[in-house]
């Protein structure tokens, strides 16, 4: 709690409090970051699950840089908004749920990377997703939907 109070007293928090446009700007950029992150993850996961088969699987996996760009955008804007709201967000159960779901989504992404590396790339060339990787793709969709839901709900608890 001391740490949260300290965060809220930093010059960054002061600057956001004083400025009329900063918080709205961070929120808006966070929203665009969400579209980049969830939009591209959805395309990758749905393609792994068999949607839009005319689009080659390896090229769709090539959308991963968009996921990272969206993720980094939202880590930066999210941290700035957290600093401003540290004592309220830090004790908000929806925020804690959001962070937990994000950690699970991260572990899931790691499992995906390892599973793809282990399975060789024959299925990629054949464009046939193994069942295990379909489970990981479904979990990824569910977890990110959960992250969004918890994020939106933070303002209401």
């Amino acid at each position: 709690m001391d740490f949260l109070v300290w965060l809220e007293s930093t010059p960054i928090a002061d600057a956001i409090t004083t400025s009329v446009w900063m918080y709205a700007t961070f929120e808006t950029i966070h929203y665009i970051g969400l579209a980049m992150l969830v939009g591209s993850i959805m395309l990758i996961d749905l393609r792994l699950l068999g949607f839009a088969r005319s689009l080659p699987l390896p090229s769709m996996l090539g959308l991963l840089p968009w996921v990272w760009a969206g993720f980094l955008t939202n880590v930066v804007t999210g941290s700035l908004m957290f600093i401003y709201n540290a004592t309220s967000f830090g004790t908000n159960r929806m925020f804690l749920l959001k962070m937990t779901l994000m950690a699970l989504a991260g572990i899931n992404a790691l499992v995906f990377t390892v599973a793809v590396a282990r399975s060789g790339d024959r299925w990629l060339a054949a464009q046939q997703t193994p069942a295990g990787i379909k489970v990981v793709a479904t979990l990824s969709l569910a977890l990110w939907l959960g992250v969004m839901t918890a994020g939106r709900w933070m303002a209401y608890v």
Partner: peptide, 11 residues
């Protein structure tokens, strides 16, 4: 609304 936006902007 945010989910629909991600679907629309993503695709």
């Amino acid at each position: 609304h945010a989910l629909g936006m991600a679907m629309l902007l993503g695709s």
